[in-house]
Amino acid sequence: MTGPVKAKVDVRRPVVVLAVAAVLSLGSTALPPLYGTDSVAVTTADAGTKAPPGKQGECNTIKDSLRPVGSLPPPGAMPSGSTMAKIQERGRLIAGVDQGKYLLGYRNPQTGQLEGADIDIVRMIAAAILGDPDKVQYVVRDVADRALLLEQGQVDVVVNTFSATCDRQRTVEFSTGYYNATQRLLVPAKSGVEGIEQLAGKKVCTSIGSTTEVVLRKPEHAVDVVTLAGIPHCMVALQQGKVDAVSSDDGILAGMAAQDPQTKVVGRPLANAYYGVGMQPGQPDLVRFVNQLLERDRANGSLAASARKWLGAQLNPVPPIPQATYRD
C-alpha cells in the first residue's frame, strides 16, 4: 500500500518460536523418565553342590585289626586312663551314624528314634562302657564325612556301614568285621534280571564316590553307571524308572527292598568287604576293647541274631558273621 512496509506484523517470529518448540519437543524424548527402575536385582544363584570326594587310593592290602588284651572290664569300671574311662567320665558315647539307611541305621518316623543293625552295635558298646545302651550321643553327618568325623575327633566311634579299605585305614582304625557285606544288585521284581550280565548297556545307579562305583566301572561289567548323592536317591530313581538297577552292599539294598515289595536283591557278589567300627588310630585301647566285645558277641550268637532280625526277611540266607583276624 503506502510506502515501504517495515515489519508491521512480524510473521517470521512465531514460526521461529514454533520451530524451536518442535525441536525441543523431539529432543525431550531422549530425557530420562522420573520413576521406574530398569530392573529389580536381588540375589539368586543356588549354593554349589558338594564336591565329589577324592578318588580311591591305589593301595590294596587291608590291615587286620588289633587283638584284645586281658579280660573285659565290667560296665562302669573302665581301667583308669583309658579312652573308655574318658567316655565313662563324660557319661555318654559319641557315635557317628546314619539316619537314612533302613534296617541298618535309620530314624523311625513314628518314634523319632534311631534303629537298625548298626545302631544295635552302638548300643552294645554304650552298654558295655556305661551300663546303659541309651547313653549315646548320635552324630548324623554326610556318609562322605565318616572318616572326617574321626580325624577331627568329633566322635568316639563311627558305625555306619563303614567298610574297611586300605585307603580309609590311613586315617581310621577299624575293628574286626561285624558284618560281611557283598556288593549286589537291586532290580524291579518283575524285570527278570538275575545278574549284572543282563544289565549290559543299562543304567545302574550307585552313590557317588563309593567303592561300589569303582567296581561297577570295571570294563567287564559294561554297564552305564549313574551316580547320585546316595543310595536312597538311587532307589527313588529306580522307582521313577530313570535307572534299571541299583548296586550297593546287600544290607543297604535289603533296606531298600523292604520299603518297596516290587523290588528284590539279586545277583552274585560283585565285591566283598566287611563292616567294622571306625575309631581313631590314636585310641588303640578302644579298638581292642571293641574287638573284645565283638569276640564275645560272635561267640554268644548275638551278632548273628541282630543281622537276622534286621535283614533276614530280605536276605536269605543272611551272610555269616566274618571271623576276627588280627595283625598283632
Binding site: L24, S25, G27, S28, P33, L34, Y35, T37, S39, V40
Partner: peptide
C-alpha cells in the same frame, strides 16, 4: 510395571 511407571512419569516436554 516399571516400564509403565517410566511411561507415565516421562516429562510432558512436548
Amino acid at each position: 510395571l516399571n516400564a509403565d511407571y517410566q511411561r507415565a512419569s516421562a516429562l510432558p516436554v512436548a
